[in-house]
Design a protein around this nucleic acid. Structure first.
Lengths: 198, 198
DNA sequence: TGTACATCAGTGAACGCGCGTTCACTGATGTAC
DNA sequence: TGTACATCAGTGAACGCGCGTTCACTGATGTAC
């Protein structure tokens, strides 16, 4: 039963969006093609009408996830007034390193969701991921320093801080079930640590 | 062909050691039971004479990895003279955040190797991992502060620094192939960031 | 100490399951006249 | 504008492969007498 060209395009979009959501929550290897298609309201057989392989979908979904997610941090960087921007960044950090942020797997930081598995993925996926990380780091630098002034130092500090946040959240998540006390201790220490940098 | 009780015990030990090495390099899901057994010089059929399931092996291998790996950081903490200890810790940090440290998957930091996947593993594996992380954090605190003096502050700072190192190394590894320049930038920034904390 | 027998570590074939991928088929859409 | 036919998005069964796990079997080890 052939359908409209436009309907087919919409179907593909729904598949990518469903994949983005599911991959972010369960990892690339934690979700099968059939599940993604079912979630998009289709059957698995038609998958290869839209994608050459599961790797292709992973790459597209990865880009989609970063597009959705980096926008939030970029919005902080677009605030003009330095004070308001600093406050917004502090809010971002607090939310990022909160219990709620830790447990919200559906809106989870893409780096935390994928960093561990990305090494074993195909080249297009790795490329999409690397581009996404660069985008995040640039946004973080802009949010914390504003455009211009103190270039390399500001970037260095942005990288150190942001990767520290990723690491802390990853660690907090990894022990959330087995050792919730330690998990919260990590979140607190990391947030305090952000204030400690000079 | 039944063998000596002692020979059987030695076989089990070899299996755990092989699993520790392979899991650390390729992750729990990246290595099958058959591969581990082959690497230990056995065939896969006998696996269940020693372990109830692959999960059991994962838990034992995880503990083994932490036992091997935490010892190095603990050795730093056992240095008495504060100056020598500080220097040893700086060396540990420098090696941890080096290109060599990033690429040496066989001796890789267990947190970096497992943090991403640990959420989906069985309870015993998560417990072994959480115990290992606690052990590392205590060792890091001892190495950076020495025993006693300034308890909670020292621990908080140790947690912030160590999780920052884990995060930076994880990020650096995740883009090592797709964006080597960014990867090295991350390592440098993170190392510089350690010196920036007050 | 020697003998008879039960035990059990290891072997390799086989099972069952999930997953990525392929394929024959359907029938509405798009297109050529 | 209407008609005839080729195209192709979607369907659902099936394939092939890897992996965790099971099982019948082997024969040296451990043990009871």
């Amino acid at each position: 039963m052939r359908i409209t060209r436009q309907a087919a395009d919409e179907n593909k979009t729904r598949v990518v969006l469903a994949a983005a959501r599911l991959f972010r929550e369960h990892g690339f290897d934690g979700v099968g093609v059939a599940t993604v298609m079912r979630e998009a309201g289709l059957t698995h057989g038609g998958f290869y009408n839209h994608f050459g392989s599961k790797d292709d979908l992973e790459a597209e979904a990865c880009a989609e996830i970063f597009a959705q997610s980096a926008a939030k941090l970029e919005a902080v960087g677009e605030i003009e007034a330095p004070d308001a921007r600093a406050e917004a960044l502090a809010g971002y950090q607090r939310r990022y390193l909160s219990r709620k942020g830790r447990d919200a797997t559906a809106t989870q930081c893409p780096m935390v969701a994928f960093a561990g598995d990305i090494v074993g993925q195909s080249e297009p996926v790795r490329a999409a991921y690397a581009a996404g990380l660069r985008r995040y780091l640039k946004a973080y630098e802009r949010a914390s320093a504003g455009p211009g002034k103190g270039r390399t130092k500001a970037r260095q500090r942005a990288i150190a801080e942001f990767t520290a946040m990723c690491g802390a959240l990853t660690m907090a998540r990894s022990v959330a079930k087995a050792d919730p006390e330690l998990s919260e201790e990590i979140l607190e220490a990391a947030f305090a640590g952000l204030a400690m940098t000079v």
